[in-house]
Simulated assay, not measured.
Amino acid sequence: MTMAAAIESRTAEAPAWSKASRIASVDILGDLNQAETIWRRLEDQQHFSTPYQRFDFLGPWQRLVGERENLRPFIVIAYDIERRPLLLLPLALRQEHGVRIACFMGGKHATFNMALWDRDFAAHATRADLDALISAIRARSEADVLAFSQQPLSWQDLPNPMALLRNQASANDCPLMTIAPDAPPTAQISSSFRRRLKGKERKLKTLPGYRYRVAATDAEIGRLLDAFFRIKPLRMAEQKLPNVFADPGVEDFIRGVCMMPLAGGGHVIDIHALECDDEIIAIFAGVADGYRFSMMFNTYTMSENSRYSPGLILVRNIVDHYAERGYRALDLGIGSDSYKRLFCKANEPIFDSFIPLNLRGTVAAAAMSGVNRAKYLVKHTPALFHMAQKLRSALR
């Protein structure tokens, strides 16, 4: 019997521990294949999660990136008394300084982290349900601490039940654009800003074959990704930032999920681009779920054409693309980059939770919480943030 099977067998036989909770039993699986059927079932129209929790996104990430980083699947599934799945936590277990930490799969490549919930259960979940879940994990797992980072406070207008647990604000904000149904284009992007972008775009329109496109075929996707992986390292080096796309397995993961089709049409990751006959001018890629587009990665040309703000022009096209399709929200990723505020005027509340499962985890949770609070203070205090930037630059 494999370790994963042993874990599943042990947990499935556990009796219900809380009559106040709808959660009657919990399994903890160490094998993606064992979790796949339930995972995909929780992705249907009755589910509640972000596109970053799709099995076709996190499965390849775990196999190609997580395993190389010595992360093991730690998939928590809670059931009601009739063994109907109520939620699935797509976690991975890592060890740092002797502490076993269960965190969300996806690492730096998942902008938002959530459980996959049965929508009705999520809408009525109580603190007793969450306490029962944590108690089951504490009693039946080898983890010392749960580190749940970058969780949205709500998604598609439904509160995230994980916010019922003790939490704190994440270090970084996520600028957000809300799109009102049938609103005019100026509701998303003002007329004056559009005029400025059109003035810049006139320069690009003189280029032979200038166009905006959403990649649809494998050949288009492959060509745009070839350009991305050629340009992005140059941009990261220019900014003196580490290139996370050069980590082992990451390029294979990105290429694989960008090529992977969704059952309802489109791909797991949508790639938008400005290009001409001579070059790819700008690329923005992200995940979409019919309600919201969330940017995942981007880059733009190193040529003289970069003077005409191709990234901003491309974002304008992306906003119009999703607004025309009835989307209600759009974000350009977590972080304080100034260009995001030109489009996204609101803030998406993001929170973290560090939950100890034993004495060792209590110390670890306190340390992780303290580090995150310090990061938050620096990010939200202009003088400290400026000082940190100068120190980072000097160290490099």
Rank of each mutant, 00 (worst) to 15 (best):
Ala4Phe: 10
Glu8Phe: 06
Glu8Gln: 13
Arg10His: 09
Thr11Glu: 08
Ala12Tyr: 10
Ala16Gln: 14
Lys19Thr: 13
Lys19Arg: 15
Ala20Val: 09
Ala20Phe: 08
Ser21Asp: 09
Ala24Gln: 08
Leu32Lys: 04
Pro60Ala: 09
Gln62Met: 15
Arg63Met: 13
Pro73Ala: 09
Ile75His: 05
Tyr79Ala: 10
Arg83Asn: 12
Leu87Val: 03
Gln95His: 11
Val99Lys: 02
Arg100Asp: 02
Met105Ile: 00
His109Ala: 11
His109Arg: 00
Thr111His: 01
Ala115Lys: 02
Leu116Arg: 04
Ala122Thr: 06
Ala123Leu: 13
Asp131Ser: 03
Ser135His: 03
Arg140Trp: 08
Ala147Pro: 05
Gln156Ile: 01
Asp157Cys: 03
Asn160Cys: 07
Leu164His: 02
Leu164Cys: 05
Leu176Asn: 01
Thr178Cys: 03
Ala180Gly: 01
Ala180Leu: 09
Asp182Glu: 08
Ile189Cys: 09
Ser190His: 00
Ser192Lys: 15
Arg194Met: 13
Arg195Asn: 14
Lys198Asn: 15
Gly199Ile: 03
Lys200His: 14
Lys200Met: 14
Thr206Ile: 01
Arg211Gly: 06
Arg213Trp: 01
Thr217Gly: 04
Ile221Ala: 03
Ile231Cys: 02
Leu234Met: 09
Arg235Ile: 01
Met236His: 05
Gln239Lys: 14
Glu251Arg: 12
Arg255Pro: 02
Met259Leu: 15
Gly264Ile: 03
Gly266Gln: 07
Asp270Phe: 01
Ala273Asp: 10
Leu274Lys: 07
Ile280Ser: 02
Ala282Ile: 08
Ala288Arg: 15
Arg292Lys: 11
Phe293Tyr: 14
Met295Gln: 14
Thr301Leu: 01
Asn305Tyr: 06
Asn305Gly: 05
Ser309Met: 13
Ile318Asn: 05
Leu332Lys: 02
Arg341Cys: 00
Cys344Ile: 04
Phe351Trp: 04
Phe354Ala: 04
Leu357Ile: 04
Leu359Tyr: 00
Leu359Gln: 14
Gly361Ala: 05
Val363Lys: 11
Ala364Thr: 06
Met368Cys: 05
Asn372Ile: 08
Tyr376Ala: 13
Tyr376Gln: 10
Leu377Thr: 13
Gln389Ser: 08
Ser393Met: 08
